[in-house]
Amino acid sequence: MDIVVLSETKKKGHGSENLGQKSLRRCITSWEPVSPRLIKMNLSLHGKNITIIGVYAVNDDTLVKDKEEFFEQLSYEISKIGQSREIILTGDLNSRIGKKLHDKIVGQFREATLNDNGNRLINICDQNNLRILNGFFQHRDISTPGYNILEI
């Protein structure tokens, strides 16, 4: 994988780990740890200016005050980028966005469940002209015969 955003890691003890060659390192123009839950990285890749925002969102059952603070900060960071760059928002958004036919933000290929974090994420996307792309494409059903599912 060329780009990975880790939203949560667990490592016993102390230390570091070398994850191999970082071939896209030369494309990174800047990065900023915005908060313990947000990190922002700017890249210049194939002539495009891209900003990746790595997210570890608050849980859906978090206090409303804390959720408002988190989603306001996320919205602010997205609005600072504006229309000058392509934006990739990735990580653990703790959001269930449902599914909709003929919608500009949410696609039809998702589960039907919608939660409060999902509503908040949809609103941010609507305000900033963004789409939640993983719902616009049919996903393979991994429970189909022929696939191995590891249960722990």
Rank of each mutant, 00 (worst) to 15 (best):
I53E: 04
I39T: 12
L89T: 14
N134T: 03
H14Q: 14
I3L: 15
Y56I: 10
D126I: 11
V64K: 06
N128Q: 13
E111R: 09
L114H: 04
H46D: 12
L43Y: 03
G54H: 03
S143K: 05
G135W: 02
I3A: 07
A112W: 00
I149W: 01
A57V: 11
P33G: 01
I152C: 05
N134Y: 05
S44V: 10
T113K: 15
N129M: 05
L121S: 09
L89A: 13
L63R: 03
S35D: 07
K80V: 04
E86F: 13
P33S: 09
I97F: 07
N123L: 06
K67C: 00
V34I: 15
I28G: 00
S30Y: 01
S84I: 00
V58H: 08
F109K: 04
K104N: 11
L63H: 02
S30R: 11
V106G: 02
A112Y: 02
T113L: 07
D61E: 14
L101A: 10
K10N: 12
I53Q: 05
L150D: 03
I39V: 13
G13C: 11
Y147I: 01
V34D: 08
F137A: 01
N115Q: 10
S23M: 06
N115K: 10
Q108F: 12
Q73Y: 01
I97M: 11
F109R: 04
V4H: 08
S30W: 02
E68D: 15
Y147L: 00
G82C: 04
C125Q: 13
S30T: 06
Q73N: 13
L6F: 15
V64R: 02
M41T: 14
K48R: 12
G98T: 11
G54P: 04
Y56M: 13
Y56D: 08
